[in-house]
Simulated scan of single mutants.
Amino acid sequence: MAQPEVLFLIITAIFASTYLIAYTAASNDYDESSQTSGSCSQEETATRCKPIESPCGCFMGPSGPAGATGAPGTVGPSGLPGVQGPQGLTGSIGPKGDPGLEGQVGLKGSTGESGTAGQNGVNGEKGEAGQDGANGARGLKGTKGLKGDSGEKGDEGDVGPGGHKGDSGTKGDKGDTGKGTKGDAGTPYVPPPLSMFTATLTSSLHVSSGYQTVAFNSVKMNAGNDYSATSGFFTCRIPGMYSFSVTVLSHPQYDLNIYLMRNEVQEARAYYNYMSDKSGYSTIGHSIVLDLEEGDEIYIRAHPTTYLYASGTGSNVFTGHLLYAAADMSVENEATEI
């Protein structure tokens, strides 16, 4: 429908509504006036109906025949906008539409806040050991695993080197005087067994033929009296570990060849050949540690053609001493095994 026609219908409806409202109000006034006065004068009856001016109103005659259709009137001016009507009822939900096209990927959202850490789970029970499988191929080097459980305490290690001396601490408060209980009586002190000697040769000794025992005749020290200056023998009285040493001076024109003997067994030898060195006197020596039994004899034996040159009391010396008694060694071994 065209817009002018719509406006015409709106204006027509407004005028019709206004007329109907005025007519209804005049009829009501007439009814009230008739009830009050009972009748109207002929002058009022003959006069055109003026609903608003006359309280009596007017009597309308019967409708006349319909007149001929008049010519269309001119389009009237646009009427005022009508009052907005009440909101209509909510319509029913329409059918589901076709799926829309897939949208583009949206922008990356901002990082959310970190969630709270979850509680540690309960350790599961230890499973049974599986059977040994065949050796597989050597795998690649794996990443560093988690720290394992602490192993069993190892054996006590050696004592490390001493650390640097620390700074002196502050002096503490004086403590209460303590009173300890009397301890048990200790075992009586038993001094360790002693067996040691030092002897020198005061005169030169030239062995021209056969083997000869060298008697170091000047005894400097003989704890335990186990060395004999007369025979030159040391006789073991206390079984254990001993240390022996001998130092002798050679003549520039003679060989020097001596042996340290245990019973009839050679344990050590010191040798000098004068042909290899004609520069003068030479001092040679030897030392050894032996495990002796009670009754073993230790002495120095000289080889034929040996010349021991005595130049003062300290040129030729024979010495020996006990390191550990056999009883002490057995106690120490038991402590080591424990």
Rank of each mutant, 00 (worst) to 15 (best):
C49K: 00
K50N: 14
I52P: 00
I52V: 12
E53C: 08
S54I: 15
P55E: 14
P55F: 11
C56A: 07
G57A: 15
G57W: 12
C58A: 14
C58T: 08
C58W: 09
C58G: 15
F59R: 09
F59A: 07
P62N: 05
P62D: 15
S63M: 09
S63Y: 10
G64T: 03
G64P: 05
G64D: 09
P65R: 10
P65M: 06
A66K: 06
G67C: 08
G67I: 04
G67S: 03
A68R: 14
A68N: 11
A68T: 14
A68Y: 02
A68P: 13
G70N: 12
G70F: 04
A71L: 01
G73T: 12
T74W: 05
T74E: 10
T74R: 15
G76A: 15
G76E: 11
G76K: 05
P77H: 06
P77E: 02
P77K: 09
S78L: 11
S78M: 03
S78F: 06
S78K: 06
P81F: 06
P81G: 13
G82Y: 08
G82Q: 09
V83H: 09
Q84Y: 00
Q84P: 15
G85M: 00
G85T: 00
G85E: 02
G85S: 10
G85Y: 08
P86S: 13
P86Q: 13
P86V: 13
Q87Y: 00
Q87S: 11
L89A: 11
L89H: 07
T90Q: 13
T90N: 12
T90H: 14
G91V: 08
G91D: 10
S92F: 11
I93P: 10
G94F: 05
G94W: 01
K96D: 12
K96H: 13
K96N: 07
K96T: 14
G97W: 03
G97T: 04
D98N: 12
D98P: 14
P99C: 07
P99L: 14
P99A: 09
P99M: 10
L101M: 02
E102W: 09
E102Y: 06
G103A: 06
G103I: 03
Q104F: 13
Q104C: 05
V105C: 09
V105F: 07
V105H: 01
V105E: 05
G106P: 01
L107E: 04
K108G: 12
S110K: 06
S110I: 05
G112E: 01
G112T: 01
S114P: 05
T116K: 04
A117L: 14
A117C: 06
A117K: 14
G118Y: 00
Q119I: 13
G121S: 06
G121L: 00
G121Q: 00
V122S: 05
N123W: 04
N123L: 02
G124S: 03
G124P: 05
G124C: 03
E125I: 11
E125W: 03
E125F: 02
K126T: 04
K126V: 06
G127F: 07
G127D: 12
G127C: 02
E128K: 10
E128G: 03
E128D: 08
A129C: 12
G130I: 11
G130T: 14
G130K: 14
Q131M: 10
G133M: 06
A134D: 05
A134G: 04
A134K: 07
N135H: 04
G136K: 03
G136I: 01
G136T: 01
